[in-house]
Amino acid sequence: MAAWPLAAQAQVDLTTLDRDMSGPRSQVLVLGTVHLNAMPAGFNPTALDGLLDKLAAYKPGIITIETESGEECDLAARHPAKYGANYCAPTEAARAATGLDVPAALAAVDQTLKTWPAQATPAQRRRLAALLLASNDVASAYVQWLQLPESERHAGDSLDAALVSVLDKTASRNNENYQIAARLAARLGLQRVYPVDNHTGDHIDVPDIKAFVTSIERAWAAGGAAQKERATHEQALMQGGDLLPLYRYINQPEGLRIAADANVRAALQAKSAEGYPQIWVAGWEIRNLRMVANIRETFRERPGARVLSIVGATHKPWFDGWLGQLQGVDIVDAATALK
C-alpha cells in the first residue's frame, strides 16, 4: 500500500492555543527520584532535609506520588481474573475500624475535605487519617499523622490500635512517598498527597511471560553501557549524608536522555519474533499517558496551581514532554528548582 502524501498527514498545531489565555497558568515541577527502598543500610531520612528545603521553597499546592489510587485499587479488586488478587495492599483493618469499603471511604474523604476547617482539631485529623487508610491512601494518612502533636498520635476517632501501628511503622519505611512527599506536604500544611500511578495499561498479557521478561532484559543489557556508568555514580552519591547532590544529578537532562535511550530506544531496536520488547514499550507509554492524565486531574479545577510530581526518574522525560503539551501548563526546570 502506498504511503499517504506528506500533506495529507499534516497535524493541527495545538501549541499556540493558550498563547493569549485568560487567567493564571499552572506550574508543574517533575522531580525524578530514586526509589528509597533501594537505599543502603543505615539510610537516615535526615539526608533528605536539603532536598525538602528546596522543594518547600517551590511552594507546591498539590503533590502527586507514584502509587496507585484507591479508585484504581478498587477497580482491580473487581476484576481479579485480569489484574490478579494482590494488585494493591488490602484494607481490611481500616475497613473494620471505620466500617467503610474503599468506594465509601473515598466518598467520605472527599466530603470531609470539602468542609475541612482552617484549624483542624486532633480528633478531626485522626478521623481523616482513618478514612484515608480505608481508601487505600497510606501516604495521605501519614500527612495527617505528621500534623498531629506527638501527644495526640494515639488511637481514637475510628483510628484503632492496628491503624496506629500502620502509621507508626510508616515513619521508618524507606519510601519517597512518605519520606519526601508526605513530609513535605505536612510541612506545607497540605492535607493530602495524590496517588497517580496506573498499571492497568502495562499489565501485559503474553503467552510466555518468562520469555517476555528475558527479551526485555536482553535488550536493556545491550543498550545500557552508559546507563551502567551513571548508575555507579548514583550509588556513590547515595552514600552521602546529604542527598541533594544525588537529586541534582539524576534530574540532569543528559542523564535522563541516557536512561531513555537505554530503556526505550534499546527495546525498540531489539529483534524479537514475538515483538516482546516493542510490546513492553507500548505498555510503558500507556502507563505514562494515564499517569499524566491523573496528574492533570488533580489541578483540573485549580487553574494556576503549583504542582510537584514526584516519580521514578525514568518517567521524568515522558512527564515533562506530555505535561508540557497541556494547555495553560508550564514545566518548571528541575535543575533551577534544586540549585
Rank of each mutant, 00 (worst) to 15 (best):
A155E: 11
G50R: 01
L17P: 04
A305V: 07
M238T: 01
T15Q: 07
L17S: 08
D261N: 13
G50C: 01
G223P: 00
D333G: 01
P5L: 04
R127A: 03
T112W: 08
A211T: 10
N86F: 09
A2T: 14
A162T: 14
P317S: 13
C88Q: 00
A139C: 12
Q27M: 06
W280V: 12
R127W: 07
P149V: 05
L131R: 00
S158A: 14
W280E: 07
M39Q: 12
Q179R: 13
R248L: 13
L237N: 01
G61K: 09
D320A: 09
R257S: 15
A85F: 11
V307P: 00
V193S: 00
L188C: 10
Q327V: 15
G223L: 03
A186V: 12
L75T: 11
L128C: 04
G189Y: 07
V109G: 07
V109H: 04
M21T: 02
P277G: 10
G241N: 06
W280T: 14
N294Q: 06
E150F: 10
G312P: 05
I331W: 03
W116Y: 14
M291C: 09
S158V: 08
G84S: 05
A186C: 06
R302G: 03
L190N: 06
R19T: 07
T298V: 08
R306W: 04
M291G: 06
Y178L: 04
A76L: 02
V143M: 02
V307A: 06
I286E: 13
R125I: 04
L29I: 10
L148V: 05
Q119G: 12
A94L: 01
Q239A: 11
L36D: 12
C73V: 06
V138N: 03
A57Q: 09
N288G: 03
V109Y: 08
A104R: 12
D18S: 11
L256V: 12
Y276V: 03
K228R: 15
A334R: 03
D261Y: 08
D202L: 03
V34Q: 08
S272N: 12
L48W: 04
A267Q: 11
G99S: 08
A186P: 02
F319C: 02
Y87K: 00
V164T: 08
E229F: 10
I250P: 03
P149C: 06
K316S: 14
N136T: 12
D330G: 05
D160H: 14
D157R: 06
A259I: 12
N175D: 15
V281D: 02
T214D: 13
M238Q: 00
L51I: 11
G99V: 10
S26N: 08
H199I: 14
T98F: 11
H79G: 09
Q239E: 11
S135L: 13
A171V: 03
Q239H: 01
K271R: 05
